[in-house]
């Protein structure tokens, strides 16, 4: 209970203050009227819509990529059955590495003066490192997506592996005795079993990547950037008047992630009641 109280006071209080300031309430500067002007301003700025599109794109691609790689990882884990010790070691492989460090690692690896570029130049595939493929700070946000996938796929794999381990392995054997091919078994047995876990993990990955700012700041091109980077720039702008805009953007991000989390929760509930009915 004290923990919950702390959470409500600190988190809820911060949210309330942010909401107040984004509505223009800032008594320290003698501003005490509430209005939606800041939101109107933010939505009318030319950088907003490209940023929203770019954020949806990178977060969406990162989620899909993490789900695919994560499921593949879970299946491999199940097939190899390395035992719990090795599995949990695998699960913690990149867990303690912060995203910012991950982003710098990606830059060192994939940047135009990065490790791969130098290797390619050393092997004579390209003349100079700068001729290497543009994989970071690129228009498609590939560097950003690679970093997110690198970090999140493991999380998805572990969730999916746990879901697979929790259900009876006989389902698969039954399908096999009924003559189902490998692909057929995957699509009609494994995937449906995984669906609740994947919806949960996918929702978390999307919500996180949608609101995260350090990776696009380090690996993204300058324009368009993601909403969180826009909010950061507004927050640290020389002009104190940009502060409310930063908070308005943050609240818009919170609203989107909240909506996604809600949608994920509803989808999971619906799935649970559906499977409940069919098994009855």
């Amino acid at each position: 209970m004290p923990a919950l109280l702390t959470l409500v006071v600190l988190f809820g209080g911060g949210l309330a203050l942010a909401l107040a300031q984004s509505l223009g309430y800032w008594p320290a500067l003698g501003r005490e009227t509430l209005s939606l002007d800041v939101y109107r301003l933010v939505l009318s700025e030319p950088e907003f819509w490209p940023a929203l599109g770019f954020t949806l794109w990178t977060a969406g691609l990162a989620t899909v990529g993490s789900l695919i790689l994560g499921v593949a990882g879970a299946l491999l884990l199940r097939a190899a059955a390395p035992g719990l010790g090795l599995t949990s070691w695998f699960a913690q492989l990149n867990l303690p590495v912060p995203h910012s460090v991950g982003a710098v690692m990606i830059l060192l690896l994939l940047g135009q003066s990065g490790w791969l570029a130098r290797l390619a130049a050393a092997f004579g595939w390209i003349e100079r490192p700068v001729e290497f493929l543009i994989l970071t700070h690129d228009p498609w946000g590939l560097g950003i997506v690679v970093e997110y996938v690198w970090k999140s796929a493991v999380f998805v794999a572990v969730s999916a592996w746990a879901a697979l381990a929790a259900v009876d392995a006989d389902y698969d054997s039954v399908a096999r005795t009924l003559g189902a091919s490998g692909w057929r078994r995957f699509t009609s047995v494994t995937l449906p079993l995984l669906r609740p876990a994947l919806i949960g993990a996918g929702t978390l990955v999307f919500a996180y990547t949608f609101g995260s700012f350090e990776v696009p700041l380090l690996l993204g091109q300058r324009y368009p950037s993601t909403l969180a980077v826009l909010a950061y720039r507004d927050y640290v702008a020389i002009d104190l008047d940009r502060r409310p805009a930063a908070l308005a953007l943050s609240l818009l991000i919170t609203a989107v992630t909240g909506a996604v989390a809600l949608a994920g929760w509803v989808a999971q509930r619906r799935l649970a009641s559906e499977t409940g009915e069919t098994s009855r």
Binding site: Q112, S113, P129, V130, D138, L217, L218, Q221, R222, Y223
Partner: peptide, 17 residues
């Protein structure tokens, strides 16, 4: 695109980009 920070400029210069 543009380098987003002074730190990134330093890297680009140091790496000969």
């Amino acid at each position: 695109t543009y380098p987003e920070s002074r730190a990134r400029m330093q890297d680009l210069f140091a790496n000969g980009e």
